[in-house]
Simulated scan of single mutants.
Amino acid sequence: MTTDALAPLLGGVGLLERAINYTLGVLHPVRGAELSAPTPCGSWTLHDLLVHVDESLLALHEAAGGHVDLAPAGRTPGDPVTAVRNHASGLLGAWTSSRHTGVTIGDAVLTTGILATAGALEVAVHGWDVARATGRSRPLPPALAEELLALCPLLVRDLDRPARFAAPVPVPASALAGDRLLAFLGRRP
């Protein structure tokens, strides 16, 4: 990869911010009655998906401190929409004030750029999942999708399939970047 292609890794926090802003925009109109809706994520309801997103946000917040505990944090009680909104907002503050250059996860150490970029991928794609579950047309922002798509080969490996991601779905080469990103991750855009 060229230095230009790796720029999003170097600016991982900015990429994470854009992913969070997209997802918060998607969450804005979500109402409690929609929480039982199915999502593109296997057998998960929207409630299940939002609990997962919230747990991811909590882990990313912890990562801003330089370490992520491998023990699950447990489910956040209450309204998952409110929890995701609150934790997403707090996450950006934690990352922008962090002085860590690496994050320890178990025995591994990742750069903050890689972890923030992986977080951006998780947050953005699950934001799209929320939009799909609620029947709203909210495509991924083109520039965000392009950057995440370029970094996918570094973040998603064959070993991640089928456990974390389904097999890629074919789409035309002329498809929008967001559709190509979603298809690469096993979603039907």
Results as ranks from 00 to 15, higher is better:
58 L>Q: 12
165 F>V: 08
186 G>V: 02
84 V>Y: 04
78 G>S: 05
142 P>K: 02
20 I>Q: 08
73 A>D: 05
71 A>N: 07
83 A>K: 10
52 H>C: 02
159 L>M: 05
132 R>T: 14
126 H>N: 05
10 L>P: 00
100 H>V: 15
128 W>M: 02
13 V>S: 08
107 D>W: 11
110 L>G: 01
148 L>N: 03
183 A>G: 06
89 S>D: 10
164 R>Y: 06
18 R>P: 01
139 P>G: 02
152 C>L: 14
131 A>H: 09
162 P>D: 03
50 L>R: 03
65 G>N: 10
185 L>E: 00
113 G>Q: 11
110 L>Y: 14
189 P>V: 04
45 T>M: 05
115 L>T: 14
122 E>W: 06
130 V>I: 15
172 P>K: 10
174 S>I: 07
74 G>E: 05
63 A>M: 13
20 I>C: 14
85 R>E: 13
94 A>D: 03
108 A>V: 12
46 L>E: 03
64 A>W: 10
18 R>W: 04
105 I>M: 14
31 R>A: 12
104 T>I: 14
177 A>W: 02
112 T>V: 15
167 A>T: 12
116 A>R: 09
53 V>L: 15
135 G>V: 08
114 I>N: 03
37 A>R: 15
5 A>H: 10
16 L>D: 08
108 A>S: 09
40 P>N: 07
64 A>M: 10
168 P>V: 09
